[in-house]
């Protein structure tokens, strides 16, 4: 198969996948060293799913994601500095240190949240699509959710609403074969999540989640449909999570089988690199991208490290528009 898109777009897909991989490789190692607090859920192995989907979107389209939040903003085009700073809990972070690893959400890039309550993004995407429609904008809203999340009522309710109102929404189930320690087969009734689309009377599409071009093509078709007022699509990207549910937790609870090696052998970045080379892209160009991204990651980490932590008063910002009053006894001992 020949890579889709003009040369710039092809290289951009490669670049964004590499950017996710290298960003997270660095994050995982500094998390192990204690520099990132809280839990870290990495996207390694799933890069083609996020990048393929987001490359089919415009910058002003909306996107909602999950606790596995690092890949989505980078796929949509966010820069690394505010993301790395957020992981370190710094005031310069994209959420000012309020959200951390599970919530890397860049609203400037169309994000409406990376929400860590499983399934809770479904209604948000339906609502954003409704808002766009009511405002007469031709924007679409894309909802990433996991195979595990497909069992939540909120996902079903979001899809049903979008279908019954023919909203410009795209639901992308990133089926990475597990929800924590639970294999998809033990939690999802029926063979494929995408099969549920029939129940809503909308298209259900299954796509190779390791093939960035295939994902882009499937999502583009859904986006075209949505913009044309024909309603939502459910797309299931068959993909794989390489690392533990959350990294550096001591033991991997994932019940992996012998197919693990087959998945790793179909690494999305390696596959795409091979396709580009076969298409005649010069190896040196790809190496140059890799090297530039390594520098971006280092730069983002330096920026994050040099940034200040939020001051205590900021804990009382953003509950409402106006800062909350801070109780004296709390302030006195902060």
């Amino acid at each position: 198969m020949t890579a889709i898109g003009d040369n710039d777009r092809r290289l951009e897909k490669y670049r964004r996948m590499q950017r996710i991989r290298q960003f997270e490789t660095k994050a995982e190692s500094i998390h192990a060293a204690g520099e990132i607090p809280g839990a870290l859920h990495t996207y390694a192995g799933m890069e083609a799913s996020g990048v393929g989907a987001c490359m089919a979107l415009r910058d002003d389209d909306y996107m909602v994601g999950t606790h596995r939040s690092h890949g989505h903003p980078i796929a949509k085009g966010s820069t690394l500095r505010p993301l790395m700073a957020e992981l370190l809990g710094k005031a310069t972070g994209v959420c000012k240190g309020k959200g951390g690893s599970m919530h890397l959400s860049d609203f400037a890039m169309g994000s409406l949240g990376e929400t860590s309550i499983v399934g809770s993004g479904g209604p948000v995407a339906a609502g954003a699509a409704l808002g766009a429609k009511l405002q007469g904008l031709d924007r679409v809203a894309l909802c990433f959710f996991g195979d595990g999340a497909s069992s939540e009522g909120a996902i079903h309710e979001g899809m049903n609403l979008a279908a019954v109102w023919k909203l410009p929404a795209i639901f992308v189930c990133e089926n990475n074969r597990f929800g924590m320690s639970t294999p998809t087969s033990a939690a999802v009734a029926g063979v494929n999540v995408a099969d549920r689309a029939h129940g809503y009377g909308i298209p259900g599409v299954i796509v190779d989640g390791q093939d960035v071009d295939a994902v882009e093509e499937a999502v583009r078709e859904a986006v075209d449909r949505a913009r044309a007022g024909k309603g939502p699509t459910l797309i299931e990207t068959k993909t794989y999570r390489y690392r533990d549910h959350a990294v550096n937790m001591g033991r991997d609870l994932t019940p992996r089988g012998p197919e693990h090696d087959d998945w790793v052998a179909r690494d999305p970045i390696t596959l795409y690199r091979a396709r580009l080379l076969a298409d005649g892209v010069a190896e040196g160009d790809l190496d140059a991208i890799d090297a530039a991204i390594a520098e971006e990651v280092t730069d983002s980490l330096n920026f994050a490290r040099e940034s200040a932590y939020p001051v205590f008063e900021e804990a009382f910002d953003h509950v409402f528009v106006d800062r909350l009053p801070i109780p004296d006894d709390v302030l006195a001992h902060a």
Binding site: G89, A91, V311, E314, A315, V319
Partner: peptide
């Protein structure tokens, strides 16, 4: 206090009841 819990550890920890707050009260 009636705020949410932030991710950033230095501003999260002082929000909970502490020995110091009980002692001064």
């Amino acid at each position: 206090p009636d705020t949410h819990l932030p991710f950033s550890p230095l501003i999260e920890k002082p929000l909970y009841p502490s020995v110091e707050r009980i002692v001064s009260a």
